[in-house]
Design a binder for these strands. Sequence first.
DNA 1: TAGTTATTTAGATAAATATCTAAATATTAT
DNA 2: ATAATATTTAGATATTTATCTAAATAACTA
Lengths: 84, 84
Amino acid sequence: MNSLFKALNDETRRKIIELLKERDMNAGEISDQFNISKPSISHHLDILKRADLITSEKKGQFVEYSLNTTILEDLLNWILTLKN
Amino acid sequence: MNSLFKALNDETRRKIIELLKERDMNAGEISDQFNISKPSISHHLDILKRADLITSEKKGQFVEYSLNTTILEDLLNWILTLKN
DNA sequence: TAGTTATTTAGATAAATATCTAAATATTAT
DNA sequence: ATAATATTTAGATATTTATCTAAATAACTA
């Protein structure tokens, strides 16, 4: 859960998640949505990946990223137990 | 949401939340559960309070803390929209 | 093969943060 | 009033982190 909370604790990363909710995107497309350098976005993607919130697949010279929501089950359950 | 994610991004603070889920506790009782100085715990409580995750009430010389789960609705909804 | 494009890695830096000790504040008890 | 107890505030410090530029890696194109 530690890496999950860490990954979510950043506005840019949460926006990336929301973008990937709509459709898969490659690193450049994601980067285009922010006024942040590509290496920084790459770093954010890495943190999201380590938290298992996204997956990546190399497609030619591009790297396509997808959202993985299954990991959010844990978070959902944690929150739900607090509310009971 | 920013202060909420920030507040949750710390193991100690998450444990404090879990403690307060069971029962209200004063600052000293909370502090006793950790190998961390009282001022540090006080600082964690402050961050949880700013995020509206807990409330405090002065009772004589003690300060009693309670969990506030209503703020978790927002988080719950954010997660749920990602899963659809 | 040489050049172009896409992405990541490396290294540096400024800002945020978790922690500590010491001191201040507030309340209770003698 | 004084001492004791509970908690917070202040100030310092080491670590983490978000960001940058420059360089490296990988893949496509002419």
